[in-house]
Simulated scan of single mutants.
Amino acid sequence: MEQLPSARCSATLDEAAQLLGDAQVLLLFTGAGFSADSGLAVYDDVAKVKAYQDRSLDYMDLCDPKLVHQEPPLFWGFWGQCFNDYRTTAPHQGYEILSRWVEQRFHHSETAQRMRAILSSSCETSEYTSFDSLPAEPYEVSGHAGAFYVFTSNVDAHHYDWFQPYEIRECHGNVELYQCSFGRARCGPGLWRAPRSFRFAVEPGSLLAFAEVPTPEALRPAGAAGAAGPALRHVGAVASGAERRSTLLRYMPEGQTPEHLLARSFSENHPKCARCRAAARPAVLMFGEWGDKEWLDSQGQVSRWSNFMQGLGEVVAATTNLRCVLLEIGAGTRVPTVRQTSEQILEVLLSGGANAKLLRVNPKDAEPDDADLAEHILSFQSTGLEFLRAVDALLPEVR
């Protein structure tokens, strides 16, 4: 078995494996550290990139939505390279391990069937209304979660390679979805998917992306026959030689945006709003944005997550000592949304009578934030991939 960095942590691996093996519900919470295991940048890596160092720019500077109007080449250079990096880099093995656990234990169990029955019978409002020919939601989702759900702040959309769309909540959006840069106040609702064939043309040295129409080579699908070699991950990569992404968005439903609107949006290297032709932007929560007037969150995701949590509350209330494991991986304190959410849900589950434990996995800041919950939180000072491999070795029956 692979040893974890901390002796204290490795001593509790057996307990973690036992909890996961006995769990009736698994809630997965992931942050930037989970993406880092795939070789993708985290916040601090961006400041080490020469093009940004030369201008004294950090992640917060680059994630300013005003840049799409004030300095478009810089804005699209950063987000375009992130988009390219995410599309060409494969999710690490930890996703596959988790997917296997979920399929074996949380998709077909009695608890999963009870959850689906509750969710399928709940009265849901339509998520797919259209406005001026542009759907409010980028795609239609059918089906319901079982005894598993993902809550993530990562914007790389890598969870769609391994998990179903009805069991994913992205609290900060993702770079595969686009919206009008003026938001709901001026242009109304509307999200659309980037075409599978699209790729941004970004200058390697300056990391600037100009508005000219990209060359056919730049627009080749990642990994397509005859395409150029793997793109260098310029935006603060933490690993090199990573695998090419062969499972690209296989569980993300096809978009329902009319083809002529999609073609109009992505006809240039700077995407345009599919409705009003103003500047578009990734549907990602950026710094300084609050409410829903600027960033457009997927209301379908919001509704599905809310319904799931409500349904889980019903199952907890009707089941004595329901065994719930909250597995949090790579969620740091700089943007604490995921950490706060996992501890809040832990507290709610405990107050409802569930037998709940939170496993917090992080190379640093692995300790509980709320001291009152400390006895229900197991801390592991480790990367997510190391932890998952080690625990997987203790669960041979899952394999």
Rank of each mutant, 00 (worst) to 15 (best):
G352R: 14
P214K: 03
E243N: 13
R399I: 02
L359R: 10
A218Q: 14
A331D: 01
S56W: 08
P5L: 06
L28T: 12
A225E: 13
S246F: 03
M115D: 07
C276S: 04
L28K: 02
V202T: 01
E71L: 03
E137D: 11
C123W: 12
G223L: 15
R277P: 00
L249A: 04
T30H: 01
T320I: 00
A157H: 07
L322H: 06
Q81D: 06
A201Q: 06
F308A: 01
H260M: 03
C273G: 07
Q93K: 05
T257W: 08
G183I: 05
A366V: 07
A209Q: 05
Q256D: 12
V213G: 01
Q344I: 07
Y128R: 11
F182Q: 13
A7L: 14
H376A: 13
Q340I: 14
Y59D: 03
G77Q: 00
E212A: 02
F106D: 09
L13T: 10
D297A: 11
V175D: 00
V284F: 07
L394A: 10
D14S: 14
H159F: 03
P204G: 03
S197V: 00
A157I: 04
I329F: 05
F148T: 00
G31T: 03
C273P: 01
V316H: 08
V46E: 06
E103C: 04
Y43I: 12
L62P: 12
G173E: 02
Q18K: 13
G353N: 10
L67M: 07
L40V: 11
F387H: 04
W305E: 04
E110R: 06
A222C: 12
A263D: 13
L373D: 09
S99T: 11
L378N: 06
T12S: 14
A242W: 02
C187F: 05
C9E: 11
E124T: 13
Y52L: 06
H172F: 05
L385T: 11
E375H: 12
Q256A: 10
S99K: 14
A366Y: 05
E217C: 02
A390G: 01
A16D: 10
F151S: 10
D61N: 12
A356F: 05
